[in-house]
């Protein structure tokens, strides 16, 4: 199983190299191969090649679907926060809420917490087994998060 992760990590790193380089001479491509082998070896020694470090088990299509949905959420939240910033009265009502997360594994929790942080108006403060502690800029942002649509989508994506 670990072998699969190594090969997949190597392939994606090689893709990264080729996209960065843009020069496809024999020398540079072979140097790229050597670099990728070295990095995979080092990553292996560091023990960072596993399911969390290289999540190819997530369904590719569902990732893009989730990103599209997240982008929409980010735009809406940005508009809301920008309105509050530019409003002369500064209508904010900060609060701290603890929300449940239903993801089965750590990676899912991380995706969820980072999505919360990426959406302006909410920042995840602490992630543990009891849930995620969130600082929200306004009551509305906290309410939206409590409804749990993001939670449901992340869980959907991270369970096969």
């Amino acid at each position: 199983m670990k072998m699969n992760h190594e090969i997949s990590l190597g392939l994606s790193l090689l893709t990264l190299w080729l996209l960065l380089s843009g020069l496809y001479t024999a020398l540079l491509v072979s140097l790229g191969l050597a670099s990728v082998v070295l990095v995979v070896y080092l990553a292996n020694r560091m023990d960072v090649v596993d399911r969390e470090g290289h999540p190819f088990h997530l369904k590719l299509m569902s990732i893009f679907g989730y990103w599209a949905w997240l982008l929409k959420e980010i735009v809406l939240a940005n508009l809301d926060v920008s309105r509050r910033i530019l409003h002369p009265d500064l209508p904010i009502s900060p609060s701290i809420v603890r929300i449940q997360c239903t993801q089965p594994d750590d990676l899912g929790k991380v995706i969820y917490a980072n999505s919360i942080t990426l959406t302006p108006g909410t920042v995840s403060l602490e992630v543990d087994e009891r849930g995620i502690e969130v600082h929200a800029l306004s009551k509305e942002a906290a309410e939206t998060l409590k409804k749990g649509e993001m939670d449901r989508r992340v869980t959907e994506m991270s369970t096969l």
Binding site: I74, V75, N78, V81, S82, I85, L86, L90, I92, P94, T117, L118, T119, P120, G121, T122, V123, H135, L137
Partner: peptide
């Protein structure tokens, strides 16, 4: 516009945790 709004928010917001939200306007949208 949003880059500047985020920066203004970092100035206008009253305390540290609310400034985080303003900064993320610049960093995301």
């Amino acid at each position: 516009f949003f880059v500047i709004v985020g920066a203004i928010g970092v100035i206008r917001m009253p305390e540290f945790y609310t400034r985080l939200h303003a900064a993320s306007v610049t960093e995301t949208l």
